[in-house]
Nucleic acid binder design. Structure first.
Lengths: 335, 335
DNA sequence: TTGTACGCGTTATCAA
DNA sequence: TTGATAACGCGTACAA
């Protein structure tokens, strides 16, 4: 059996209250008793029982991080960041992979609430009701990258319009006028914002927007490479591509390779996220998201919530990392 | 305030004990009272308090996973696997990144023990004392990939001798006789086992072992590429390379590329782990580790420990995944 | 089948 | 500066 405050009290010939005082430094304790208590704790190899503490405080020293899938290269850095901040404040972090499934989200929120966790960070959510049930139960919530508004939650996000604009502008500055955008299936706010940034860059350079240069990539589609071939088959094909993730960019490069287009000689490519960018050959130019900072900010907001009660929204800025997958547009032929 | 058993008991006009019974299905409760209680629970939007439950049971429904760095592509799959098994059994998973630092390991073990976690999985450990303190406190421990013996712990590992042998044999079968091994700094049991497997494959093919073909790669060394150039500068240079991780293989490929060696035309390369292998160009042939299975097995062992009390050791087998980075040895010149 | 009462290890509120 | 003691929410002998 683990030793308890009572055991120490007995050994040190004081009351449990006194032991608790020296443990938490909350009340004045005379140096002599303090010493006696510390000695007893040492002798009995005492570990405080966080559970009992939590029962009194009605909150455990545990944060919860919800994400879609830790196996997706975007998330590990978030998890690391949250843990770094949490641990420094004496909190542990529980991780839940929701797989973007509403039922799992609901079930895991339920588990988290039963544990009386000190707060929840959603890095990805679909189930608004689940979020709401956490708020109803009084658990602080921070949401990462969810542009929808849920009153009572803090939000941390990255400026997606700016990111897409940066990537597109870079290509335009290299002389490209036919820039394709390979996006996710439209519908999400993020995909919409990326498109918006892309259009802004075109407009600023007075390049007309051509819907034919818009493609939609879906990893679940067995015929997913068709959209890329379709771009290549255009009468006036793109000389550059902005992909909305490094994974898509790499998949695109592979398809291009198979069809004897060379990067960046024949086509320039910009990725997004800067997670896999350094691994590919050639190394990808990519729009870097401040992923780690996303996590630390979220954790800080969460741990702060008691003090400042108003919902807050923090927007971080992406940056462009130039590597080897982008180059000046080749002049094809003199006219 | 959250609603408690007492609130429900009051509303349903029964005792708290009865409410507890229907909650856990432990004693016979008449259908009528059962219904009344469930209705009351529903009406009051009751969340069981896992903390109070844990205090009684002296164990929380939380597992702990220690790993070096979730940002390293080996670990996310382990984390996912552990979580999948844990959640199915009603457990949550706390994650700690130790960064391979003994002090952090000790501090996090302390935190875990204070939380009275139901068990700890170490996927990476340096600090034997920390492990021991967990065992002393009666917390079940499973260790992944640690060949050292700590009595009282279960161990899950992958056969590293076999893995290195598979990779080397593949290259030998392709006609290569000069196969380099790019290993970590020697000293760890894993590095030793990989070397052993490499030697076994050479011996089986009656190829003499040449220490000049052994290299040590260290990502922290600013001059880390020198070891590769040294291999290339040998009088009789290797035509194939086995690297002990995909990351090293990719770094090697990049260096080769810079020095105008083409893969697999001039050199064949085999990676290890099969984590990044599919991302590179050309895609890497790699020794695949059953990473996910490593995690599920560890979690199952942990959740089982109460029943079977004897320490167990499970060894899983790696497999070879052939892709585009290996090819038959070119006949350089007819003699 | 149901109720009473105690214990789990702390913190916190009083008194002393 | 210390000590008794009542919570905290739940499980569970034991009694009814």
């Amino acid at each position: 059996m683990a030793t308890t405050l009572r055991d120490i009290a007995r050994l040190a010939k004081v009351s449990v209250a006194t032991v608790s005082y020296v443990l938490n430094g909350v009340a004045k304790v005379s140096p002599q008793t303090r010493e006696r208590v510390l000695a007893a704790m040492n002798q009995l190899n005492y570990y405080p029982n966080a559970i009992a503490k939590s029962l009194v405080k009605q909150r455990s020293h545990v944060l919860t991080l919800f994400l879609q899938d830790i196996t997706n290269p975007f998330f590990p850095a978030v998890a690391k960041a949250v843990e770094d901040v949490a641990v420094r404040a004496g909190y542990s972090v529980i991780l839940y992979n929701t797989g973007d499934q509403e039922e799992k989200e609901a079930a895991y929120v339920q588990m988290a609430l039963e544990q009386r966790v000190a707060g929840i960070i959603f890095c990805t959510v679909r189930n608004r009701a689940a979020v709401q049930s956490a708020l109803d139960q009084g658990t602080p919530v921070v949401i990462i990258e969810w542009p929808g508004n849920i009153p009572g939650t803090d939000v941390v996000q990255v400026d997606n319009v700016l990111g897409a604009r940066l990537g597109t502008e870079h290509l335009i500055q290299l002389g490209h006028r036919r820039v394709a955008l390979i996006n996710w299936v439209l519908g999400s706010v993020i995909a919409g914002d990326r498109l918006k940034g892309y259009k802004q860059a075109l407009a600023a350079a007075k390049i007309p927007f051509d819907p034919a240069l818009l493609a939609t990539y879906d990893f679940n589609d067995p015929d997913r490479d068709a959209v890329i071939l379709k771009l290549l088959a255009l009468p006036d094909p793109p000389t550059a591509v902005l992909a909305v993730s490094d994974a898509i960019a790499i998949a695109t490069m592979r398809t291009l390779h198979r069809h004897h287009r060379r990067v960046p000689r024949d086509l320039s490519i910009v990725g997004y996220d800067d997670t896999l960018a350094a691994l590919s050959t050639p190394q990808l130019t990519s729009v870097a998201q401040p992923i780690y900072q996303l996590g630390t900010t979220a954790a800080q907001l969460l741990l702060d919530q008691d003090r400042k009660r108003h919902p807050r929204r923090v927007t971080l800025e992406p940056t462009l990392v130039v590597r080897d997958s982008t180059a000046e547009r080749r002049q094809l032929r003199r006219q």
